[in-house]
Nucleic acid binder design. Structure first.
Lengths: 246, 246
DNA sequence: CGCGGTCTTGAACTGTGTCAATTGCTGTGG
DNA sequence: CCACAGCAATTGACACAGTTCAAGACCGCG
């Protein structure tokens, strides 16, 4: 997943420095942050944080993908967030975690000790401002997802998920979001099901259906080719503009 | 809904001054806010803001209830937020609205002209800090709701909605959330359906079922009595603690 | 080669949606 | 005061999307 992730130079060479909570910080502020931060690696499948745990740190995903998950007593689980590089984990001012955070792929986190980070939030507006922006974006994403969960059919749900992942991937590679798109699914069928509020059987069936109908092509289980992104968007039931008026 | 809402004294007598975006502001800051604010009333059923509209203002719900709604081209709609008194409407830094905002009851809003409000956000940290807190709370609520939409049965969904409304109402009346609870539903069956990702027929059926099973009592369509709040929580499928570890 | 994942496919079942008829409530006008 | 219109809600019958349970395929790995 991460080719060569060089963290020895500190923030200078950090791959997420333009998008993370620290994106707005000046040199002084980065200095302060440097004093309270440390890196941690997690393997795919590992749980970074258990719901109910005391939070020792907050932090940013540097590389890899993690998921925020909620579980009911009887075992039903719902993924409530997909954490990509630069996304923020944890809530300043809250002592205990409310969700499980699980590494979907290998993950590297840039962690800040919680207490000093909270102090910094009050004293330096740049961190708080950036965090507000990021939180507003996540809120929008969550609400977007509520429409998917509440009103879309299984086929539309799958198409929605694929177009989100495809879009993210394209923007990462600086490609346009038109025509042919190729990417690897970072999620198992079960994780997809948990995200979409479906069973893994239904996910599998709908993936097969989309393949049969030529909306996607599959090599192996994870490698996806989308011949026409417009077609995929259409299947997702989104407006053609893809929420561009946002 | 609003007995006597006296707004002539400005912020002094404002019923939401402890919980709104302005809750942390000192006298000076309130002064500044006063210069950019105005009140607006809306009638039940009226649309305050259309998705895609240019946002002239952001602001707080002073009294009444509004809903945030998203609609697909074919008419399927999903409510993505319930706006109660003190809740914030609009997103600083965004020019166009992304959701419809509809008055569910008569509503009074305290509006701030957007541009000057945005300037203020940068200059006075108190507004931004409070907004961050509120946004984080809303994000949590949205994620909570994703579990409801994605994994709960129709019956559990109804019970979840009733317990949320009941809880809010109890805390407003400063009652405890145990044993007998009585409140009025501020939503039509259709609005409930839009919130829960169900049809209004299913909502109606499940309301009848909960009534038949003694979980709730109904007088007319809107007046609800919950003999045992614990029983209701149980039907909602939530842990007994009701998310107290948050 | 066989073993343990992950994924696919099938068949039967079921919860929720759909369509349609009916009830009940509220306010209006005769 | 009753009749009636108009709307919200209830109820029923049936259809169907998605779940459940179960069998098997695929694939990498010892």
């Amino acid at each position: 997943m991460n080719e060569t992730l060089d963290l020895t130079n500190g923030c200078e060479s950090c791959p997420i420095k333009h998008r993370a909570v620290c994106a707005r910080c000046d040199a002084d502020e980065l200095e302060t942050l440097d004093g309270i931060k440390y890196y941690r690696s997690f393997e795919a499948g590992q749980t970074l944080i258990w719901s109910g745990d005391r939070m020792e740190f907050v932090g940013s995903v540097v590389s890899g993908i993690a998921s925020l998950t909620q579980t009911m007593e009887d075992g039903r689980t719902q993924m409530v967030g997909l954490l990509l590089p630069s996304d923020f984990v944890g809530r300043p001012g809250r002592e205990f975690a409310t969700y499980d955070v699980v590494a979907t792929t290998d993950v590297v986190m840039c962690c800040f000790r919680r207490k000093p980070f909270e102090t910094m939030m009050v004293e330096t507006p740049h961190v708080a401002q950036r965090l507000l922006e990021m939180t507003l974006d996540e809120l929008d994403a969550a609400r977007e997802w509520m429409l998917v969960l509440g009103r879309k059919t299984a086929r539309e749900k799958i198409a929605s998920l694929l177009s989100i992942i495809g879009r993210r991937d394209a923007s990462l590679k600086l490609e346009g979001m038109v025509g042919r798109i190729v990417f690897d699914l970072p999620l198992t069928r079960e994780a997809m099901a948990d995200y979409l509020g479906l069973t893994l059987e239904t996910v599998s069936r709908q993936m097969s259906a989309l393949k049969r109908d030529g909306v996607i092509e599959l090599e192996g289980k994870r490698h996806v080719t989308v011949p026409s992104f417009e077609r995929l968007m259409d299947e997702a039931g989104d407006d053609a503009d893809g929420g561009m008026m946002a």
